[in-house]
């Protein structure tokens, strides 16, 4: 107990916040079983094929990024729902990622690749990098932001970002004397091919750019 705690009465009221009913267990299990039959969309090679065409565009990355940030700050006109309950829908909810957003995503994935490659090398050599958890936390925060961005919702990138979210969270929680944990993480990285998958979407060079659909 500290003097920071809420009044006991308030805490009691807070515990009624969004009080859940009993879960529909069988219905949920049926949904999960059905959904698991659907295969996950794999990463495809077009990322690599179009890189030569995108490299010139990367030179303008800074300008485009600033432009994209400006665009993102302009919200679409709100949808008006009348008393009749009829709602007029606007443009598609999830816009395709812009070039600048793909650049940002590519840049982030490049940083994660460098970090994980270094982390794996350190771990295999038996050295424990005390900076790793802090860096992992920083990259984890950026990964979560990207997961919520149009670039992160790309069907080809989302599974990779989700894997990165998990592995970065694991590294972020490493104790000072990690020992066996390091081996487990690097084993997981190898088994899931995480770094290889990162390299398949991140080109070499100073300005990584990911290709979009359009």
């Amino acid at each position: 107990m500290t003097d920071d705690e809420l009044d006991p009465n308030l805490t009691k009221i807070a515990r009624a916040y969004h009080q859940p009913p009993e879960p529909p267990r069988e219905q949920l299990w049926a949904r999960i079983a059905e959904a698991r039959k659907t295969p996950v969309t794999p990463l495809r090679s077009p990322w690599r094929r179009a890189l030569p065409f995108l490299i010139p565009a990367a030179a303008a990355a800074g300008i485009l990024l600033a432009f994209a940030l400006g665009r993102m700050s302009v919200r679409p006109a709100p949808i008006i729902a009348g008393r009749s309950g009829v709602t007029v829908h606007g443009p598609a909810e999830t816009p395709a990622p812009t070039l600048a957003q793909r650049i940002t995503t590519g840049d982030h994935l490049g940083r994660v690749e460098v970090f994980l490659t270094g982390f794996r090398a350190e771990a295999r050599s038996g050295r424990s990098d005390t900076v790793a958890p802090e860096e992992a936390r920083r990259l984890l925060a950026a990964t979560r932001i990207l997961l919520d961005s149009p670039g992160g919702r790309d069907a080809r990138i989302q599974p990779l970002l989700e894997d990165l979210e998990l592995v970065l969270a694991e590294i972020a929680q490493l104790p000072a004397e990690a020992g066996q944990d390091l081996n487990l993480i690097t084993t997981g990285l190898d088994r899931r091919g995480t770094i290889a998958r990162l390299r398949s979407v991140v080109p070499t060079g100073d300005a990584p750019v990911l290709q979009g659909e359009s």
Binding site: P21, L28, I32, V40, D163, V167, E170, D181, L184, G188
Partner: peptide, 26 residues
Amino acid sequence: SDRAADWTQETFIRVFRRLGDFRGDS
């Protein structure tokens, strides 16, 4: 309940997909 059901479903799909990565330190 609608969103909770969607999110519960998504959680278990990810759990089964990633269980091999669980390190066991928590």
